[in-house]
């Protein structure tokens, strides 16, 4: 996948105080362990006709064996 998308409006970074991150903890967002990623992700599904958005999320949760998942806007309008 592509790099993290930048906002549409160009935003300038203002540095208040330089600080170095420690690599003893945390991860680069693009290389976090897969189990962690799968529970901290956005998935863009291509919904097919038929089942409701709710049904789609339910079967997605079952398939991936996720405890929590939800869609951000129903596709029923």
């Amino acid at each position: 996948m592509k790099e993290e998308k930048r906002p549409t409006k160009a935003r300038k970074l203002i540095v208040r105080e330089e600080s170095e991150p420690s690599w003893e903890y945390g991860y680069n967002p693009r290389s976090r362990p897969i189990d962690m990623l799968m529970n901290l992700a956005v998935v863009v599904l291509d919904k097919q006709g038929g089942p409701t958005s709710h049904d789609v999320v339910a079967s997605f949760k079952r398939l991936v064996k996720l405890e929590r998942a939800g869609h951000t806007g129903t596709l029923a309008i």
Binding site: M38, L40, A41, V43, D46, K47, V56, T72, L75
Partner: peptide, 25 residues
Amino acid sequence: MTGVLVVLTGSATNVMSYMHNFKKE
């Protein structure tokens, strides 16, 4: 209806309410 359905997983679902106002096509 078909097409793009954005799903958040695990603790990412905590910010669901911030994803509602996106422009649609």
